[in-house]
């Protein structure tokens, strides 16, 4: 099996105006793509809100994809969309806001027309836990209804709606995840396995994949060094950056974190999964790191450590 690796775009680089995303200008964006290309990434995942910027810089989003392809990429593989902060206009657990959310999703789908074939429409299925509390079964079912609805629409455009669960979201524990998947239609709603987020929430990502592999359409390979055992997931307004005890939640693979990536890799091989594998770095600059170095080390780890796990698993088949 040939693995296909994509990169999830959180990159920050040094500019004359301080550290900013490479969308700073076209030159920076070109260099960013070349850097990923040099390491051998073939897929590119991005956020919905970058689409207008890409259009501005390259003339159109497909023109940006052509630039990726000129540099050895296959295509844009995933688009990430989310409503992390609930407002009166948009909140997945509030049914009255669903029409608006669906309309937004349709707008995003129009923004990626003409691309070679984005596969995943990645969503955060809920807003922050603290805004959703109390998290009832009913609210989880309401959220399931929303994504069933969205999933049907994206599938018409060839994209699978796939759910990425934050440790601070309202669907975070294993029972909540099970209830959510029970109420979503396997034909319309898929599972996206973020190794670090699940680990922080006390959910074993490898077991999660084992149990939901039939619905799994992607991964964020990232690591963490902390499990949230003190309810930091409830920190308002934002647990990801403001948790009292943890300044940095996410780390690249191979830096002594809690996730057992070789085991996951073996599980992936054994399952016959043939979709994209994605490296995500989030806040890599905290504590003095850089995105470029984190990306090199992650890809080095893939080619030198995970490749070995993959070979072992393939031999065992």
């Amino acid at each position: 099996m040939a693995t296909k690796w994509s990169y999830m775009d959180h990159w920050v680089t040094e500019t004359p105006q301080g550290p900013l995303p490479p969308s700073f200008n076209r030159t920076y964006m070109d260099r960013y793509v070349k850097q990923l290309s040099a390491l051998g990434f073939q897929g590119f995942d991005t956020f919905f809100f970058y689409l207008p910027m890409l259009q501005g810089m390259y003339g159109s989003v497909p023109a940006f994809e052509h630039f990726l392809q000129d540099n050895g990429f296959e295509k844009i593989t995933g688009i990430f969309s989310a409503y992390p902060y609930a407002t009166k206009h948009t909140a997945p657990h509030v049914r009255e806001t669903h029409d608006r959310i669906v309309a937004d999703c349709e707008y995003t789908l129009r923004g990626i027309e003409g691309l070679a074939g984005v596969e995943n429409f990645i969503v955060m299925p809920s807003s922050t836990d603290w805004q959703t509390e109390p998290v009832t079964d009913d609210k989880i079912k309401i959220m399931a209804d929303l994504w069933n609805r969205v999933g049907r629409i994206t599938l018409e455009h060839g994209l699978k709606t796939t759910c990425h669960f934050e440790f601070w979201g309202a669907i975070r524990t294993r029972p909540q995840l099970e209830l959510f998947f029970e109420h979503t239609d396997p034909e319309y709603v898929y599972f996206f396995c973020d190794t670090a987020q699940h680990t922080i929430a006390g959910v074993d990502p490898v077991q999660m994949f084992r149990d939901y592999k039939d619905r799994c359409t992607g991964f964020h390979f990232k690591d963490t060094k902390n499990v949230d055992t003190t309810g930091m997931y409830r920190t308002a307004p934002d647990p990801e950056l403001m948790a009292p005890d943890v300044e940095r939640w996410f780390y690249p693979m191979g830096e002594g974190g809690l996730v057992d990536f070789p085991s996951l890799m073996k599980e992936i091989v054994a399952s016959g999964y043939d979709g994209w594998l994605t490296v995500e770095h989030d806040k890599a600059e905290l504590g003095g790191g850089t995105y470029a170095e984190a990306t090199c080390l992650a890809k080095w780890y893939i080619d030198n450590v995970l490749a070995e796990a993959q070979r072992e698993a393939e031999a065992a088949l």
Partner: peptide, 11 residues
């Protein structure tokens, strides 16, 4: 210039 926030003030 179209996109002047980026094309002028950054580029």
């Amino acid at each position: 210039t179209p996109g002047a926030e980026a094309t002028m003030l950054k580029g």
